[in-house]
Design a protein around this nucleic acid. Structure first.
Length: 132
RNA sequence: GCAGCCAGCCGGCUUGUCGCUGAUGCCGCAAGGUAGAAGAGGAAAGUCCGGGCAACACAGAGCAUCCUACUUCCUAACGGAAAGCUAUCUGCGAAGGUAGAGUAAUGUAGAAGAAAAUAACCGCCAAGUUUUCUCAACGAGUUCUUCGGAAACUAAUGAGAUUGCCUGGUAAGGGUGAGAAGGUGGGGUAAGAGCCCACCAGCCACAUGGUGACAUGUUGGGCUGUGCAUCUUAGGAGUUGUAAGGUCAUGUAUACCGGCAUUAUGAGGGUUGCUCGCCCCACGUCGGAGGGUGGACCGCUAGAGCCUAUUGGUGACAAUGGGUGUAGAUAAAUGGCAGGCACUGGACAACAAUGUUCAGAACAGAACCCGGCUUAUAGGCUGACUGUUUUA
């Protein structure tokens, strides 16, 4: 059993402008679990900076104040960090293919951290199930 | 004590654990790994002013446009502060709010009102003329007569009153209006009037005080309409903002730059909006090298820095000494979870100190950096001052 590190470094975050444009250009899978929606896209092993890259988006339309937007991003990021091996373990059987995903906040209100974590778990589980 | 007012300050602390950015050290050719200092605000916000910094532009003249506007003072600068001045409003008060260059010229000011500025509509006064009346004086004429008179009438004269017209004087009075030719009283006058005088308000001059705005005056001068706009005066204003701008990597169409050569004198471009003026010039050739994509580094945090003491100043602030190293992210870090402490409120127990338990804890997140302004903000602390109650 290898050591599991519940980290979330910069290489695991999606920064490339071109990849972001490809992700949102259309044709990629998406799945909602209110108050979240996930958009994901498969990459070849040569692309990307890590096995899984994520992006969290909270539109300004939902929260006018930066404080609340940041708070939501932190909740989602924390929830992914604690549950990312749901996805990483499943990905080992996929022959080195890589994944890009974006979490988009849909609600106009703040939610509790427990609820956000449950929804993230649900979304990750859904992606794993769709691999088979 | 309670209520208030002004100024300044704080706006959680801490333990464990899991994370994020990461100066720097170590390992490594490198990618990276590992240890790891430090890590949001008073407003970081709005992006409203001012400045630094950067790039580009810039011979010069005139006109236009825009901004500022009581005084002195602070500052790198400001449309910001400080201390004052004048007017006005609010509050019992401590205090707070609002406005503030000038008025020579031009324009404008609804309704109202006689009239809105070289004022005569009504009214008042005078002269002329006119209507009517009264009175006076004597004379004239006529009529009457008892021939003594003077009863009546007529026209004229003078005085007064009066009707209309006209000429002139007059701003004391007149419904209005934000404002009516400074106000009140007296003298004066044909009637009136700063025409004259006293007091009062303003203005100008002078004197005194103040750096000054201004203030004061048993001083002098009869000088006296209000608002707004244009305007006038004084000072100021190049444009774009760190996605500026620079370096490196990748690497291709002829937009760009420089040299040389050549043509033309009119179209275009630049110079702040306009005018003048000034500058540039299509094409060829040689050399440099660029569109787009998208990554790294610099810019990027030592700055008009922060803390503190003393001195000067009413104060904003300044000078000097000492101390200090204090965020630099890039789809954007500074957080999550579990405890403890402190704070506030409720409930319960208790004479009380206090204890138990349950809740609550604002506005808000750096994006080149400063100085301000504006707006949001639960709760709390400190100091000066004001009002009030009780007690002494």
């Amino acid at each position: 059993m290898e050591e599991r590190k519940y980290t979330l470094t910069k290489s695991e975050r999606l920064c490339s402008k071109t990849l972001i444009e490809r992700l949102f250009a259309g044709g990629n899978s998406s799945f909602p679990a209110f108050p979240l929606r996930v958009v994901y896209m498969w990459l070849e092993p040569s692309e990307g900076t890590s096995d899984v890259s994520i992006l969290i988006s909270v539109p300004k339309k939902r929260f006018k104040r930066a404080v609340k937007r940041n708070a939501v991003k932190r909740q989602v990021r924390e929830a992914y960090r604690r549950n990312k091996y749901l996805l990483l373990d499943a990905l080992k059987s996929q022959g080195g293919k890589r994944l890009v995903l974006a979490f988009i906040w849909l609600d106009n209100q703040l939610r509790s951290s427990e609820e956000v974590e449950r929804k993230v778990q649900k979304l990750l589980t859904h992606i794993v199930e769709s691999m088979q």
